[in-house]
Amino acid sequence: MADIDSSGGGSSPKKGKKKRGKKLSTRVDMTPMVDLGFLLITFFMLTTSMSKPQAMEINVPDNTKIPENQETKIKASQAMTILLTGKDQIVYYFGVGEEVQEPQITDYSAGGIRKILLDEARKRNPSFDSIAVYENQFKSGKISEELYKANRLRIQGYKNGLIILIKADDKARYKNFVDILDEMLITNNGRYAIVDIAPSDLKMIETNPYLKK
């Protein structure tokens, strides 16, 4: 039991001097305060909601061998390749195989890759802007979260929509990889995949005179 002794103390009065009144010892029992402290700690532990880590869904290459006749073919008109390079630069081009357009260079700013992604998604998907409409309805409580997610996935899965291939060379930083995934989320592009960079892409980067070396 924890006590506080607040007695006056002092030595006994000397002989021949007037005796003073004896002070009584005051004891304060601190045990209830300790119990209260543990009760408060227990209360906050049980009522506080723990923060949940947010995981980002990433589509990565699958090493499983798939027969050529079962491979998913991407139309050249749908494909967009994003190459992450050094100096916080992005090289991008449209098309696949021999139907590749002239590569362009941009950055991670709102007027850079974000604007390009939004423009291209709208061009290929007429209902792309409806995602923002459903999102506002969900935030205002007009529709449920389940209905919002269902409509968003339906629009993102449009068969003729934009398909993005993300590749990175050894000069790109981890921050660049995180930034481009954030742009996929911001621009509501759900059809993207992270694939290995091809030798032809590396040559395209090395021979581009407009890139910062």
Rank of each mutant, 00 (worst) to 15 (best):
I4E: 05
S7T: 02
G8R: 06
G10P: 00
G10N: 06
G21C: 07
K23G: 09
P32I: 11
P32S: 14
M33E: 10
F38T: 05
L39Y: 05
I41P: 04
K52P: 08
K52N: 14
E57K: 15
N59S: 12
N63C: 05
T64D: 09
P67A: 08
E68M: 03
K75H: 00
K75V: 02
A76I: 04
I82M: 09
I82C: 03
I82S: 03
L83M: 08
L84Q: 12
T85M: 09
K87V: 00
I90A: 08
V91R: 15
G95N: 03
G97S: 06
E99G: 00
E102Y: 02
E102Q: 02
Q104D: 04
I105Q: 04
T106P: 06
Y108P: 05
G111C: 03
K115S: 04
K115H: 01
L118G: 06
E120Q: 14
A121P: 08
A121W: 09
A121E: 15
R124W: 04
P126Q: 11
F128Y: 14
F128P: 10
D129R: 11
S130W: 12
S130E: 14
E135A: 06
E135I: 01
N136Q: 13
Q137P: 04
S144G: 15
E145T: 05
E146M: 12
Y148C: 06
K149Q: 14
N151M: 13
N151H: 14
L153P: 11
Y158W: 06
N160Y: 01
G161Q: 07
I163L: 09
I164T: 08
L165R: 15
I166H: 09
K167P: 00
A172I: 01
A172G: 02
A172H: 12
Y174L: 00
K175M: 12
V178Y: 03
D179P: 09
I180L: 15
L181K: 07
L181T: 09
M184H: 08
M184Y: 06
M184R: 05
L185Y: 10
D196G: 15
I197Q: 12
I197E: 14
I205Y: 05
T207D: 14
N208L: 03
